[in-house]
Amino acid sequence: MNIEWLGRQFDTIVFLLGWHVLLTVIPLILGLLIALPLGWWAHRSRRIYPLLVGVAGLLYTVPSLALFVLLPLVLGTKILDPLNIVAALTIYTVALLVRVVADALESVPEDTVQAAKAMGYRSWQSLLKVELPVGVPVISAGLRVAAVSNVSLVSVAALLGIPQLGSLFTQGFQLRFFTPIIAGILLCVILAMILDGLIILLNRWLTPWTPKVVAS
C-alpha cells in the first residue's frame, strides 16, 4: 500500500466514494418503493404472483454488464450516462424485492390477519398497521441482500467508464499498481458493511417485538 499516493488522491477517492454511495442507495430506495405495491399485488392475487415473480427472475438472470449496455436502447440515454446504472440497479432491486415483499406479507400469520379483519380494520388499515409492520423482518432481510449486492454491482460500471469506486480497479490495472485496487476493495466492503448495519439497526428499531435479532 502506497499511503502517499492515497493522500494525494484523497479528493478523487472521496469523489468516487460519493458517486458509489449515490449509485447504490438511490436504486435501493427507488427499488423498495416500487417493489412494495408490486409485492402487495403479487400477494393479493394467485394469478399475478407467478407472473411477477417469473418476470423478476428473468430480469435477474441478465448479467449486469449486458443490462448496462442494453438500457440506453430503451431509455434513449448515452452509454456513459449514470442514469443507466441507476435504472439497472433499480431493476435488480425490484426483481429481488417483489418476491420478498410478497413472501413477507404471506408470512404474516393467517390468524393475525383474520383477527384484524374481524375487529373491523378496513383492508388498507390492516395492510399499513398490521401486515406491513409484521412483515418488516422478512423485508429487511431481503433489503440487506439487495444493498450488499448493489455495492458490488455498481463497481462493474467502471468497465464502461462511469466514475465510482470501481474506477480505482481499472486505474490500478492500467498502472499495474496495487494501492488503488486494494483501497477500492476495502472501501467497497466497508460501504457494504455500513449499509448492512444500517438496515439491521433500522429493522431493530422497527421491530422491538421480535423474540431476538434476526440472525444473518
Binding site: P109, D111, T112, Q114, A115, A116, K117, A118, M119, G120, Y121, R122, V130, P133, V134, V136, T207, W209, T210
Partner: peptide, 20 residues
C-alpha cells in the same frame, strides 16, 4: 367493518398482533 367493530371475536390461537 363497522359491524365487526360491534362484535368481539376470539379465535383458536388468539391471533394476537405479534408487533404490539
Amino acid at each position: 367493518a363497522l359491524l365487526r367493530r360491534r362484535i368481539g371475536y376470539v379465535i383458536q390461537h388468539a391471533g394476537l398482533f405479534p408487533h404490539r
